[in-house]
């Protein structure tokens, strides 16, 4: 009997309570999150509340107007933004993906010029967007004489998002395990067959996600367009790539700089529309990522 009666205290696993430090740390982490989300929430509530009276059909149906802000709309801004983003996607996505394929699959990293290119792509991603605006103004609008057109804006924005597209496409391509490439090459596939039939299909969800996020950043840009002279109230939709245009952020900017209260309400309503487009694009990106996530 005595052998079995080991003192209970020797094997006790009872909690001594969580140390205070653990609590403090957890609260610090949580409050950081609350601060970040709290401000976003405040902003959302503020613009929704202010812009609510103007979120209606006229906002979409009507053109901006200086004289009648109470019935003015933002159609030219929405259509202009769609034109710019569509054209940017057409130009920047193929270029960016092809550049990423070169860097990941072909470039010899022991060569100095490839390392210089790599380093500078990261640098380009950090260049302020206003600088791209100056570039667009000086080279595309003036020197190439494309003027203040949709084409000029789209090329400028393409250059702006290209480094981001390249970087995110590279990450997606790099995430495809080397064993997939080896498996394909060992069967007698060429390098291009391996890339086109194995690597790219596996990387497409990642590339798509990164591209959407890059484009949604472009949607919110105002600075380069200011440089490109799209700042005025535009009362017509672009008719083609050589038409002049405005975009939503600039529209909002020009409304806010007016003194009458109705313009501020209109601006808030336009912000709600812009945020809605952004949230929609980001949701699609997240959905794509979850839907096609590869598990190796």
């Amino acid at each position: 009997m005595s052998v079995l009666s080991t003192p209970r205290s020797a094997v006790r696993l009872a909690s001594k309570g969580t140390p205070l430090r653990e609590h403090v740390f957890r609260i610090a982490l949580l409050s950081s999150l609350v601060i970040a989300l709290g401000f976003l929430l405040m902003l959302l509530i503020y613009v929704l509340e202010e812009g609510w009276p103007r979120i209606d059909a006229t906002l979409w149906e009507n053109m901006p107007s200086i004289r009648r802000p109470e019935t003015a709309g933002i159609q030219s801004g929405i259509i202009g933004t769609l034109w710019i983003i569509g054209l940017t996607a057409l130009m920047a996505l193929p270029t960016g993906v092809l550049a990423a394929i070169y860097l990941e699959e072909y470039a010899d990293r022991t060569k100095w010029y490839n390392r210089v290119i790599e380093l500078n792509i990261s640098n380009l991603a950090a260049v302020p967007s206003i600088v791209y605006g100056i570039l667009g103004l000086g080279i595309i609008a003036r020197w190439l004489d494309f003027g203040f057109t949709v084409m000029t804006g789209a090329i400028t924005i393409s250059l702006l998002v290209l480094p981001i597209v390249i970087i995110s496409a590279r990450e997606a391509i790099r995430a495809v395990p080397p064993s997939i490439r080896e498996g394909s090459l060992a069967l007698g596939a060429t390098q291009w067959q391996t890339i086109y039939r194995q690597v790219l299909p596996s990387a497409v969800p990642g590339i798509a996600t990164g591209s959407i996020l890059a484009l949604s950043r472009a949607i919110g840009e105002a600075a380069p367009f200011l440089m490109l002279g799209a700042a005025t109230l535009v009362r017509f939709n672009p008719e083609g790539v050589w038409s002049s245009f405005t975009v939503l952020p600039l529209q909002i900017y020009s409304f806010i700089s007016q003194s009458r209260e109705e313009f501020h309400i209109l601006a808030s309503a336009a912000i709600v529309v812009l945020l809605a487009i952004l949230l929609l694009m980001n949701s699609v990106a997240i959905w794509l990522r979850n839907r096609y996530q590869k598990r190796w």
């Binding site: 395990p177 064993s179 997939i180 080896e182 498996g183 394909s184 060992a186 069967l187 007698g188 596939a189 060429t190 067959q193 039939r197 194995q198 596996s202 590869k294 190796w296």
Partner: peptide
């Protein structure tokens, strides 16, 4: 060649086999 870690392509069983003959 067969590798240390099985490395099937993330495709159907059929497409895994058909890939080699196709590219060749």
């Amino acid at each position: 060649m067969v590798f240390q870690k099985p490395n099937p392509f993330p495709k159907s069983i059929y497409d895994n086999i058909a890939y080699g003959p196709k590219v060749n």
